[in-house]
Write a protein that binds this DNA or RNA. Sequence first.
DNA 1: CAATGATTGACAGTCACTGACACTTTCCGG
DNA 2: CCGGAAAGTGTCAGTGACTGTCAATCATTG
Lengths: 199, 199
Amino acid sequence: MGAGGSLREVSRRAVQSRIARTAEALFVAKGFEETTVDEIAAAVGMSQRSFFRYFASKDEVVLDSVERLGEELSARLEARPCGESVWDSLRRAFDPVVERLADPAVRERDRVLHEIVSASPRLLAAYLGRLDLLQRSLSELLVERAGRSGDEPDAVVVRAIVGGAFACLQAASLHCGTDPEVFGPCLDRTMEALRPVAA
Amino acid sequence: MGAGGSLREVSRRAVQSRIARTAEALFVAKGFEETTVDEIAAAVGMSQRSFFRYFASKDEVVLDSVERLGEELSARLEARPCGESVWDSLRRAFDPVVERLADPAVRERDRVLHEIVSASPRLLAAYLGRLDLLQRSLSELLVERAGRSGDEPDAVVVRAIVGGAFACLQAASLHCGTDPEVFGPCLDRTMEALRPVAA
DNA sequence: CAATGATTGACAGTCACTGACACTTTCCGG
DNA sequence: CCGGAAAGTGTCAGTGACTGTCAATCATTG
């Protein structure tokens, strides 16, 4: 089935990565809105048209890594045991977000990305849109899981709980830095404060 | 100080309202992305340039009402007593959102707006961006309030709690309709489930 | 009536993004 | 080694959101 010719996919990813790094440097230097796609394409050494063959939009260059983190997060959540509470499963699914920060290189890149995103209202909105999409799919997953284990799940409450967990994640990443020694406890503190009474 | 020449402001609002109603009709009929600003301007009977004198962007036409609701919500929260818990203050601040739905005309408009927003990923993202902005300002307000009443407020936790409350609101407005008899209890149910242990 | 300031339309320009087409490079069986 | 399909690329033209500018109009006020 058409998903993933491995050899070519690798080189595609390599080109995407090259574009992303180049673009991020420009975004940091001049700002996101102030950098045109033409400039990025020229800096990479390709036509504007080709840029859009690797990224569907200018936003995508920055949000692509969020997408990938979302997939991992989704996979982690799916791997959690059915008996575990929704809240704890979510907290564990967030582990990679914290663990990533152990690598200084990753930490630096996250910092840069965060700076770019939070400096542009439009990008920030697009970012939140992605998170919302992710929350929807995680909610569905959890509702289905609850149904499997015999519970009668309340879809609205599950959705609210997932939203609450992401609110904790968002608050932590906003107020605490990218230092894992600070971020982790910070996330735990917020998630303890908001822990649902039952679920 | 420069805020609000009353006479002219009124007529400006009237024009904005006329544009908004016209545009919303077109959005429902053809979809948001498929409706061009030229079409809206022509339908209202003005130049495209003038359209942009009343709304900074096409998004703004739809999100303007969200903005106004946000201001009311902010004012309500500020009016709550300092002694009240953060969570209860937020729940009470949400009251106008529920009460608005008592008026069938308002309910219908909310339904239309909701339909338009949720049908366009870009608009939805912009909407979430506004909510995020609102959450920031409410968080600041609550942190300051907690400081006034002698508590030592934890800004991160407050931010997470505000985010959690909005997650409840969002979940309710997503899963329950615009019927106030359904929406209200739905909101209460989610907010009871997520009520923070202390705060 | 004349001066003034706000509102507007017309026009031109930028930038994100898309579709079409021609060209080249790569790959593969014969 | 060759011929042709497949994939990648550049060029060009076009759409649509948005902005700056300027001249004309309109209402207000002295």
